[in-house]
Amino acid sequence: MVAPPRHAKVKKGMKKRAATSRTSMKTRVRKITKRRPRSVPKNFQKKKIQEYVKTGIEGLDQLLDKGIPRGSSVIIAGGAGSGKTIMCLQTIYNAAKDGKKVLYMSFEETEERLLDHMKAFGWDVAKLPNRKDFVVKMCSIYDITRLLEAMMAKAEGDLMIDINPIMIPKGFKPDIVVIDSVTAIASAFQGKDTYRSYIENLFRYLQREGVTSFMITETEEVPTVFSPTGVEEFLADGVIVLYSLRKGDIRQNAIEVLKLRGASHMKKVVAMRVVSGVGIEVYPEQEVFGDIK
């Protein structure tokens, strides 16, 4: 028997290899097609599902549509007696009932007084299922000035450890933080530049930690600037303004969502009440009669 010529052997081998590689290519394509549905574009990336935080305050959540995007920083601005503290206490109490970890940082009132305010509205923190996840911390301006000195030392290389712009209790990772108030913090600073640097650090820190924050600012009765320097409202993701409007010898409360990044919201000033034993009630359908000026 005569052996086939060498070129025939090569050709046969090539055919065999070609057949094998075609089959494996087919198999490879089938596997890929099974993994990826045809309707999905080639550059498909899984979208991050946005979570929203609700305040649990009747009527206010209607103004906010889906809610506040988780991790947002929101300025709560208003004059004296407009309901800022009550609104924040009510929000974090509702969040704590839902199992969230909350931190209220107060530069003005003691923990005891704040908890007493809450009890007057029927919000008894002692009866929360996870009492330890509801933390009220009284802070002083000197805490901020010491932190600032440490941050400056860190910036100059004199300090090696990381310094955070606010002192969150060790081992506690809150979902929601209230800072009452940013106005008090601003009063601790001599120069605008140092304050601006600090406040930018604060916003960046809260964003990095994924904390939803409410920062109270004291303003005029009908404000045109909603924060101590005007910078904070630009840095913040949201601004909610509370009013206590004088009409002759009476006062009328009102509220509006001025700004909220990443979420839709109603754009109007609506009536609000502070109801004994209940807290804040917002009436999204109710206009406020009389000029707001």
Binding site: G248, R273, Q286, E287
Partner: peptide
């Protein structure tokens, strides 16, 4: 309602 001027409150209560 605290006053005849409190039109917003009157409106809320009527609603």
């Amino acid at each position: 309602v605290q006053s005849p001027k409190s039109l917003t409150d009157i409106s809320i209560d009527m609603s």
